Amino acid sequence: MLNKNNDGKNADFRLEQVIETIKSKDKEAIKALFSNKALDEAENFDENADYLFSFIQGDIDSWEELGGPTVFDSNDNGHKKKEVSSYYYVNTDKERYFFLLDDCTVDTDQPDNVGLYLLLVVKAEDREKIYDGDQKIIYDGYKRLTHAGIYIPLK
Rank of each mutant, 00 (worst) to 15 (best):
L2I: 11
N5V: 12
D7W: 13
A11Q: 00
F13E: 12
L15T: 07
E16C: 15
T21V: 03
T21P: 06
T21R: 08
K25M: 04
K27M: 13
K27A: 13
K27I: 13
I30G: 04
K31L: 08
L33Q: 02
S35K: 05
N36H: 14
K37H: 15
K37Q: 13
A38V: 02
E43G: 05
N44R: 06
N44T: 08
N44E: 07
F45G: 03
Q57L: 01
D59Q: 10
D59R: 06
I60C: 00
D61I: 10
W63S: 10
E64L: 02
T70L: 13
F72I: 14
S74T: 15
N77V: 06
K80H: 06
S86I: 01
S86T: 02
Y88A: 02
V90K: 07
N91K: 13
Y97V: 00
C104Q: 13
C104E: 12
D107P: 11
P111C: 07
G115H: 11
G115A: 08
L116P: 01
L116Y: 02
L119D: 08
L120Q: 06
V122H: 03
V122G: 08
E125R: 08
D126E: 08
R127G: 10
E128F: 13
K129C: 06
I130K: 07
Y131A: 15
D132R: 04
Q135E: 12
D140N: 14
G141S: 07
Y142P: 14
K143Q: 14
K143H: 11
T146C: 09
T146I: 11
I150W: 01
P153T: 10
K155T: 07
